[in-house]
Design a binder for these strands. Structure first.
Lengths: 203, 203
DNA sequence: ATCTCGACTTGACGCTGTCAAGCGATTCGG
DNA sequence: CCGAATCGCTTGACAGCGTCAAGTCGAGAT
């Protein structure tokens, strides 16, 4: 192996290689052996560290959820700082993240490719969802609106659905077959929905 | 081969076998060879008819979109017949279809596993989307609301996102970890969204 | 009667995930 | 200080996979 190996770095190298493979080839084409080759280790090394393919992808997806949480927190903070509506910024942040990291975002929700019961994964998921939940509860006001929980889930479904539809190339088909236009359309729809929701909230 | 073969039936048998494999094992686990075994033909027969794996799955997905269109049309017809709001019935129909045929619904939107440029597939997709579009345009009234198109897409995103979140098992995690509860929750959220949208429409 | 063509089959290739076994260095108990 | 156990990783094998090239064989056209 031509690389200097500061102890325990093989695992990190594998994780980095897995991320690169994911970005370049998409989640379906990530193979243990290709990742091992890229990291410069034997073909069975990934299984040694992660158990199996699902284990390796779960590790990648968990990092992805952590990154999503950070992105959402940043979006919320910037919005409050500049006095803009938080929920819309959050939705925008979710969609932006999904559009910037398509392969990762798809992997993160591909239950069948992960170990869905992995504790770290679940924790990271909850943390990401918590951001949206808090924002909707906030928007509903301190009067403990019983619908707040439901609308936070609907809002999640909107942004998640938009990201999915862009990834799946269906929105592109709707709008002039241009993928960039589809992304713009998705962001515009977030704004449309945000305004609608706000108008309901203030009754 | 032990089965009587009315001419050209091998293709049909393969398609049927592919559907069964899909339902039993999920889209990721559908293999050309397993489908061939189930249909009682040689391991290369599927490729002969469908070109490759993506071609076979595209054929299955195209049938799926046709079935979805039928389900949506039925839902719309029943709603108009009984004077209930069409859009909500449509959303409900979309979600019900997705929850009743999870593996199929996931496959239908798994761009990387299909031939996304297949003419038949695109046509079937457009037809299904057309149902939602028409209903939203209808709800917006004959006054050619310029937002109608956008809200139809948002509505699509809502129901699509809900189905995705249930499939991915994330909604189940939100609601007591019970998959049935997640399905019920999804249906309730469709109703919540439908009411909200209606309240916006009537200003 | 031959030619062709479509519907398959047969056999091979390289790639995949997974598993059992091995190997060298480090750590640790006696 | 020495043997044993553990860790990190490799080697080698296995079956299943998608795909491709070549072959078989019957039916319909010339």
């Amino acid at each position: 192996m031509e690389q200097i190996s500061p102890a325990g770095s093989a695992r990190d190298a594998l994780l980095r290689a897995a991320n690169e493979e994911l970005i370049e080839k998409g989640h379906a084409a990530v193979s243990l052996r290709a990742v091992a080759r890229r990291a410069g280790v034997s073909h069975a090394a990934p299984a040694h560290f992660f158990g199996d393919r699902a284990g390796m992808l779960t590790a990648v997806a968990t990092e992805g959820f952590a990154a999503l949480s950070r992105a959402l927190e940043d979006a919320a903070r910037h919005a409050t700082d500049s006095g803009r509506p938080v929920l819309e910024a959050l939705g925008r942040g979710y969609v932006d993240f999904g559009l910037e990291h398509p392969a990762l975002m798809e992997l993160m929700f591909r239950r069948s490719e992960l170990n869905p019961d992995d504790a770290g994964l679940i924790e990271a998921q909850r943390s990401a969802l918590g951001c949206i939940r808090a924002a909707v509860a906030d928007l509903a006001g301190a009067d403990a609106d019983p619908d707040a929980e439901e609308w936070s889930l609907v809002s999640w479904a909107v942004v998640h659905g938009l990201v999915s539809l862009v990834h799946e190339g269906v929105l592109a088909r709707v709008s002039e077959n241009d993928p960039d236009a589809a992304a713009d359309l998705a962001r515009r729809l977030v704004a449309v929905y945000g305004e609608g929701l706000a108008s309901i909230a203030r009754r």
